[in-house]
Design a protein around this nucleic acid. Structure first.
Length: 419
RNA sequence: GUGGAUGUAGCUCAGUCGGUAGAGCACCUGGUUGUGGUCCAGGAUGUCGCGGGUUCAAGUCCCGUCAUUCACCCCA
């Protein structure tokens, strides 16, 4: 038995399932690259303060879910719990915001949160994200949402819903916040929730407990408190989405767990994951750059959960196309054959053919079994008899037909057969 | 942090009333001296999560513990 196992809440990605993850990352990122988003990669850890100020001191992410550490030099660091704060920090540090705006960036990586593991919730998880920095334009919000929805569709995902809301801006949100607090303070709630009313009242709307939801029926909604600017901005985003054929559902209660969101807020939810239904989400964060010490830089972005998207695809029974499969499998018999065939395989690979080789000195029978399992269409069999005649046996594994071809024309023959 | 469920072969699981373990799949060997997928024959594999208790006897009953898992909370 293994002495070690992956830490709680983590898992290893192994073949063949790992191919699904690569396919999901590719399907999400390819459209971003085509839409002018450049690749950005930031460290796996940052100063704790960046997340505390960026994500929000009052959020669960910062107060109880970060993996923090103190270096020998005394720096307080945290494994990144999300991507936006890091990417914005990197863009500011690299002065990208001094060039043409918006700056459009995409990224893919691992994130860490210390939470109780559960279906679709891991301590180490994988996201692909996109951020568009430095422009206040409803079309930019719409662009990102359309790119995400289209990526899901391309993967074959069907049963997801896009929830849309506006959280207002620094002008109208405080007014709403106060109105909501007045309402919430009169409800019958537990101590922890009462505390939340004072720190982050909007998040109370997100409570799933029925006893809480029943009391929230008449809660004031942000949409009735939006200022003219926010109202018109949100309306434009909605129109652009509709024009693009992207379906959405207005959800006036949609709140996100990160404090930096303003105006447009959205979440993609899927019913097949158990209780963790969000497969992706994001929104506009016009004040974040200033919160982490930069200039005003209105921005919008999202992150899609790779693990959760894979779970959603499995829940819908979507089969992703398999990745690279072996086309030709080489079976050598004996030392001399091994040397010759190895060169053939190398040449095939250099010519772009997916070729594999029976390593480990297997017997004929075993080697053929491996050839079969590799999924290869053709096998190349080389033994002493063939060497004596300077030929190699080219076998079609589907039909079982086998023909001898000249050893030095083998690569060409295989290429002709395959193409 | 709170609550529920489950831990038996590599995987999925069965195991009756307590009598020291079984199936399917996968794997290996042979049937075939140099030919796979099908078929046939044979084979290997277990700290029954761990520790303790009850008992003549524990995979089975009791207690503890660890792990996994689901839900709350929170979020991707």
């Amino acid at each position: 038995m293994n002495t070690f196992s992956a830490p709680k809440g983590t898992y290893d990605l192994l073949p063949p399932q790992s191919a699904d993850f690569l396919a999901v990352r590719e399907a999400i990122s390819a459209p971003l690259r085509r839409a002018g988003y450049g690749y950005v990669e930031t460290p796996g850890f940052e100063q704790v303060e960046l997340f505390a100020r960026g994500v929000g001191e009052s959020t669960d992410i910062v107060t109880k879910e970060m993996y923090t550490l103190t270096t020998r030099g005394g720096d307080e660091l945290a494994l990144r719990p999300e991507g936006t704060a890091s990417v914005l920090r990197a863009a500011l540090q690299g002065s990208l915001h001094r060039g043409a705006l918006p700056v459009k960036l995409w990224y893919s990586g691992s994130y860490y949160r210390y939470e109780r593991p559960q279906a679709g919730r891991y301590r180490h998880f994988s996201q692909v994200g996109a951020e568009a920095l430095g422009a206040e334009d409803p079309a930019l919000d719409a662009e990102l949402i359309v790119l995400a929805a289209d990526a899901y569709r391309t993967l074959g995902l069907r049963e997801f819903t896009l929830l849309l809301n506006s959280l207002g801006d620094r002008e109208c949100r405080p007014v709403y916040r106060a109105a909501l607090q007045d309402f919430l303070r009169n409800l019958d709630l537990d101590e922890e929730t009462r505390a939340r009313i004072e720190i982050n009242p909007l998040r109370v709307l997100d409570d799933k407990r029925e006893s809480v939801q029943l009391q929230l029926a008449d809660a004031p909604l942000i949409r009735d408190h939006l200022c003219e600017g926010c109202k018109s901005y949100h309306e434009q985003v909605r129109e652009l989405l509709t024009a693009a054929g992207v379906e959405y559902r207005d959800d006036p209660r949609l709140v996100r767990g990160l404090d930096y969101y303003t105006r447009t807020t959205f979440e993609f939810v899927h019913g097949g994951l158990g209780s963790q239904s969000a497969i992706g989400g994001g929104g506009r964060y016009d004040g974040l750059a200033e919160m982490i010490g930069g200039p005003a830089l209105p921005s919008v972005g999202w992150a899609l959960g790779v693990d959760r998207t894979v779970l959603a695809l499995r829940a819908e029974g979507v089969e992703l196309p398999a990745g690279e499969t072996t086309e030709v499998y080489a079976v050598p018999l004996g030392e001399e054959a091994r040397r010759s065939l190895f060169s053939v395989v190398t040449e095939l690979r250099r010519a772009g053919v997916a070729a594999d080789f029976a390593y480990g000195g297997k017997g004929m029978k075993n080697a053929m079994k491996s050839a079969n399992r590799s999924g290869a269409r053709y096998a190349l069999v080389l033994g002493e008899r063939d060497l004596a005649e300077n030929v190699v046996q080219l076998k079609d594994l589907e039909s079982g037909e086998q023909t001898a071809v000249a050893l030095d024309s083998a690569v060409g023959q295989v290429l002709t057969k395959l193409r």
